[in-house]
Design a protein around this nucleic acid. Structure first.
Lengths: 159, 159
DNA sequence: CTAAAAAGTGTTATATTATAACATTTGGAA
DNA sequence: TTCCAAATGTTATAATATAACACTTTTTAG
């Protein structure tokens, strides 16, 4: 992965998350940042209860352990801001990889490895345009598009 | 909907279902046909438990009422044969609308109305090709593609 | 500054979606 | 006809997600 400096990736994502939250009058609280950082720690899709387990592992003595609503609230918040996305076909979540300062309303295509869970996210301008045109041809008004490619990543094929 | 004769649609779908099951050495039993017919009765996506409720409504006295595994088994069977598809983004199922005798390995694009649940299914040749090429460019091997467009159908917009 | 409102969090319980495990029945093949 | 494989019935439970309400913290208006 010569092209991906992950420290910079995390730093930039966290910083951008702060900015976008502020710009929408929202607060990126400690809990929300924790969930984001768990998802940023590698580019793998994780289930809500896996995230919850990580939060519990990290939890400070003397406090109750986090419960499902805690993680789902943070996930909802991050989804709203577009900082993470859901893999609908496996009920998992991953940190968005697109620099949204460049491209706020993109059609994301997720390429999810069924071996290791790694997610690559690409932008599809032409693909989005085609879908919107096709929908318009029979009067359908699209609100949201989901494109998920399930398969095996290059790394896992090499193993 | 001048273009869609639904009686013919159901008849053809049921007949084709029989053929494809036979050709794969499988049996389209009464239960499986019941689930398929429930989904064919209109082109709406339904949850597994909604289907189960319909099966229970129809159930004959003197027998136990069907349980969740019953409907999930039938759904799995029909999914395997490509006779139905799952809407991953809402855990629902709909009867496939494509004439698969013409086009067995298509990339299906589902257009799901969030008002009425109606599903239109289109085939995307070019879209599929673009996705496979893009995946190949970074060594990703696609096994399955999910494309779901959520929005409002022409009929519901007119209301 | 302070009271009231709003946003966020903690906690318990429960809803929704899906499957495991094992017993029983059915429909053909040997 | 007996045996095998496929299908079904049944009970229990796993996995995913949210409702509801109490409490705390932050923001805002006066």
């Amino acid at each position: 992965m010569a092209e991906h400096n992950h420290n910079i990736c995390i730093e930039k994502s966290t910083q951008f998350a702060q900015e976008i939250a502020l710009s929408k009058g929202k607060k990126l609280t400690a809990q929300r940042l924790l969930v984001l950082n768990i998802l940023l720690s590698d580019h793998k899709a994780m289930g809500a209860y896996d995230i919850l387990d990580k939060m519990r592992d990290m939890h400070v003595e003397g406090q109750g352990k986090p419960q499902p609503p805690t993680v789902y609230r943070a996930l909802d918040f991050l989804l709203d801001l577009g900082l993470i996305h859901k893999v609908e076909s496996q009920n998992s979540f991953y940190a968005c990889m697109v620099d949204k300062s460049q491209d706020e309303h993109h059609l994301a295509q997720a390429f999810i490895c069924d071996e290791c869970g790694h997610v690559d996210e690409k932008i599809a301008r032409r693909g989005a345009q085609n879908l919107f045109e096709k929908a318009a041809s029979f009067g359908f008004k699209i609100n949201k598009v989901i494109v998920e490619c399930r398969g095996i990543c290059a790394t896992c094929q090499a193993i």
